[in-house]
Structure formats: C-alpha cells, structure tokens
Design a protein around this nucleic acid. Structure first.
Ligand SMILES: [Zn+2]
Ligand SMILES: [Zn+2]
Ligand SMILES: [Zn+2]
Ligand SMILES: [Zn+2]
Lengths: 184, 184
DNA sequence: ATCCGTAATATGATATTATTACATATTCGA
DNA sequence: TCGAATATGTAATAATATCATATTACGGAT
C-alpha cells in the first residue's frame, strides 16, 4: 500500500538558531512569520528531499497555515473548490494525507480534523493542546514524554509506531478573559 | 461470530492476591476473570455510587468486555439490536457515552471505536496500545506521564481537562508469529 | 520525438461514524 | 398522585471517510 517513497526524514539539520521555537499558538505572536517559517520548511523539503508539492497540496498547506486551528477535511475541501480545484472528498483527503505523511500537517483525532505543523522538522511526536473554547490548537514538543512512553510500551513487549497525544482544555487567553475569544 | 469463548486453560495466572494488575491484554490470561473483575467493579458502582446500569448499558458493557478490542458504535448497535434493543444509532451512542462518562469504557479516537475499561478505578488517563495487526487494545496505566504532561501544558498556561494518549504499533504476539493472529 | 509506466487528479458513488429532534416510557421524589 | 427528571425508541440527517474508475501529467527509456 505505502508507496516506495525513499525520502529519508533527515534530522541532520536543526532549524535556524535565532528563531524562537514556534510559540505555543495562543500566545501573541507574529503569525505571518510563523506560517512563513512553515512554508519555507516545505520549500526546503521540495528542494532537498524530493517532496512533490503540487498545487493542490501547496494550497492545502496554505489553508491550514492560516490559523492555529484544526480544519475538517470538508472545510478544506470547500476552500479548495473555491480556488478551482476539485470538490470531491478525495481531493482534500489525498492532499491532507500526503501532508500528514510528510510531517507538514497533523491529524487531530479528537477533532476529526487537520492542522498544519507549526514546528516542522521536530520529528518527535508532539503533544496537541486543544482549547475547547476558541478551538485553537497548540503544538508542544514532547520528545521526552514520547520516549518515556515508548519505553513503557516496550516494557510489555509492544513496539510503538505512531503516537498521538492530545489534551483538551482551556488556553490561557480563554481562561483570562472568559468568553472573550481572543485566541488565534 | 467467534463461538463464545472457551476460557483458555490458563496456566499463566498470577495468583489473584489483592488486585491482579490487569494484564496488558495481549499476554495470555484468564479473560473470564479479567472481564468479570470489570463487571464486578460496575456492580460495586451501582451499589455505592448510584450508577444506573440499565439493561442496555449493562449489555453494552458486556459486549465490550468480550474482547480486548475496540468496537465501533455500529458494531455494538448491531449486537444490541440482536438482543431486542433499539436499532437506531442513538441507542448505542447513548449507552457508550454513559459508560465512558462513568469511566467504564474508553473511546479510542484513532479507531473511532470504544473499548471497555479493563482497569476500572484507575481514574488516570491511560495509555492505549493499539496493535495494527490483530486490533487488540491494551490499556497501560500512566499517571506519571499524564502528570508530566499536565505540568508541561501548565508551563505555557494551558489547563488540561481531558487527555488521550494512543499508540499504534505491534503487540508482542503479532511480532513473534508474524501474521499468526493469535492475540486476543 | 515516441512510448511506457508511475503518480496524481477528477468524479461519482458508497461506506462509516455521529448528531438532532421528537415522541414515548419509566423512575423517583415531593 | 402528580410532576420532574431520566431513559428509551425511532426517524431523519449531518459529518466524516473510503472505494472504484477513468483520465491526465510527467518521468525515463527506447
Ligand atoms: Zn502562528
Ligand atoms: Zn482558547
Ligand atoms: Zn482479558
Ligand atoms: Zn496484535
């Protein structure tokens, strides 16, 4: 099923040092730079890892990058259709699945939705913090937790291949001005 | 489908001293005792916590307890209908939601499915180990990880309310006799 | 240039999962 | 016994996801 695909993830390069490691989404930040960084990462993968960022895929990524929020496949599909792409479910699912596979987006299972990866290159299962009020989704690095988890699983003979850690709760913005809806 | 379980002659049973800490599901064990324990826990809640384990709910729990596997809501619904209960989706969803709310079952988001809680009373977000081969679902206690996670989230001002940790991979049974399908 | 194989896309249909709405029945306490 | 809360049955529909098939775009090899 899985296509051959010989693009190694290559973790040989840490991102540029001076960049603050991608704010937790609900703190005030320059989102234009934030999404730009993610897009740059994708471009770099195009050049260096043979990524095929076709128009649909690229547009899908852009759409996801607009907000720190997860979009349902059908939301994405509607946006794609507006832009002249196909309007059948597989159009969106294909693009989304591809992005997820390449680590440029994540699937948020609790929401049945997809979010752009805002910390590209991290290569470790992130933790998603989902605010139940404003719907913003923050991505927290959690290599240590993932490692600890894999170890615990290994202890009972289970080998982990994919890991999803999702926390639903309240983001600081929403907690402070309750009902304010200031987040993303 | 599979004839109702011939409770394998367990030679691997740890003596049930106080609380046999609920085997990881894919190790050979006396599942009859395993599910019985969960059912007992439910009964105790009925007596001590005013739980209302109506016929549908009880039957739903029994169905989930049959195997260490997650069942889709519609699978459960079909079983319920066989037994003379309603055959419309809300019948299953209501019962399942109730069980989840009371901690007697879990929702496995990665599978869009539900599994009985095999370690009732734990009350800490468990880790689910989902075998991609045989579909068995094991539940590992992970209070420490949950706590660590909540701390990390709190560090950025996010307060966690619900947490789901799900790992997909391969269980020891399936890894050993590859393709053997011996698990639960 | 032409051919061929693979990947990507378009489209229609179908499958699966989940919710809403409302009517009826039951339980439980004043 | 009455009324409120809870639970169930049923129909309709929404939301999410996959399948099947045909067509097109784009390599590399003749
Ligand atoms: Zn941003
Ligand atoms: Zn928020
Ligand atoms: Zn068991
Ligand atoms: Zn297995």
């Amino acid at each position: 099923m899985t296509p051959p695909d010989t693009t190694p993830p290559d973790r040989t390069r840490r991102n540029r040092a001076d960049e603050p490691p991608s704010q937790p989404a609900f703190v005030e930040h320059d989102h234009h730079a934030c999404s730009g960084r993610a897009l740059e990462h994708a471009e770099r993968m195009v050049r260096e890892a043979g990524l095929r960022l076709t128009p649909v895929r690229r547009r899908t990524l852009e759409i996801l990058l607009e907000e720190h929020r997860a979009l349902g496949a059908y939301d994405v599909l509607a946006r794609l259709a507006e832009d002249g792409f196909g309007n059948q479910p597989p159009v969106a699912y294909r693009a989304l699945d591809y992005l997820v596979e390449k680590g440029l987006a994540h699937r948020i299972r609790r929401l049945n939705a997809f979010a752009a990866c805002m910390a590209p290159g991290h290569e470790g299962a992130p933790v998603f913090l989902i605010c139940g009020e404003c719907g913003c989704v923050a991505e927290l690095p959690a290599e240590d937790i993932a490692g600890r988890l894999a170890a615990a699983a290994g202890g009972v003979g289970f080998s982990v291949e994919r890991l999803s850690i999702e926390a639903k709760g309240t983001c600081p913005s929403c907690r402070d001005n309750a009902g304010g809806r200031t987040c993303p």
